[in-house]
Write a protein that binds this DNA or RNA. Structure first.
Lengths: 147, 147
DNA sequence: CTACGATCTGGAGCGCGCTCCAGATCAAGC
DNA sequence: GCTTGATCTGGAGCGCGCTCCAGATCGTAG
């Protein structure tokens, strides 16, 4: 049990890492976004560089970028991601703070989901009433130009 | 049955309507936003004006603003709201298009909700693994600074 | 009538999250 | 070595949805 398997998701990575274009393609973001994330402190550690200075992405970076886009997809601000990354950079000992940050975000997302769902429900209701009135041919007044 | 009760939600409105400040307060948006909505064509019909030119909001406007903020809360773009409003302005006969627009939006919101939920689930999973490792005291490597 | 806060208009500014650009350097094939 | 395309950096630009500002006018209490 407990076989060590670090970074299981990027098995087919060449040892020398990926170019920025390839990293972008695989992670579904643009090259510009990768550089933007890096320069605004959203990478726990920046990608390696070749002797010539071009970036090389390895599993650790690709894994983080994937997590990062998931966080962004749930609406976490880049600012908050930066704060998380800072905690990571500080090293071990602040795990509780990291979890708290993530769980705060989680709570906000859940609240947001509920808000959207509720508003959608209210709109749905309005759509239903509207549809019904249209069907009955007396839609005048409701959601049409007033006065 | 079927008692006529148009705009049941704004029973306590003075006949002369509300000032923009009062309308803003009641609908939970800013005065600037009300003017912004109006000037960018997001009101099916603009509020009435006093002889001196100040706006007076009545039930029809307040009702629309409420719906509008709900649409916005679900992420509908101002652009799309403008398209809807245009249809309303065109008058009757395009109800099918209006419904289609709303239902297109609805489908997008549902897809968005699913995406967020899925991403949150993936993040949750990562949190769980992390928490467990922290508890076991071997959190090094996972979500901490690579290399 | 006066004063003073509320509202008006046109237009500029802002914060976010990228996105694009110019000009220089690098990398790979011939 | 030369060419050609990829990548580099610093910085400007953009689209969205407001938000703020200046300078003028309105409206109401005293």
């Amino acid at each position: 049990m407990s076989v060590t398997h670090r970074s299981p998701r990027f098995a087919d990575l060449p040892d020398e890492g990926l170019s920025i274009a390839e990293a972008a393609r695989r992670s579904g973001v643009s090259v510009d976004t990768l550089r933007y994330y890096e320069r605004t402190g959203m990478m726990p550690s920046p990608p390696a560089r070749t002797s010539g200075g071009t970036r090389r992405y390895h599993a650790a970076e690709l894994d983080w970028i994937r997590t990062c886009t998931r966080l962004r997809a749930t609406g976490m601000s880049t600012e908050r991601i930066r704060r998380y990354v800072e905690l990571v950079r500080e090293g071990e000992g602040n795990e509780a703070q990291r979890l708290e940050l993530l769980e705060t975000h989680r709570a906000e997302v859940v609240a947001q989901l509920e808000s959207i769902t509720e508003n959608l429900r209210l709109i749905d209701h309005k759509i239903d009433v509207y549809r019904e009135r249209v069907a009955r041919g007396d839609a005048d007044g409701l959601w049409s130009t007033p006065r």
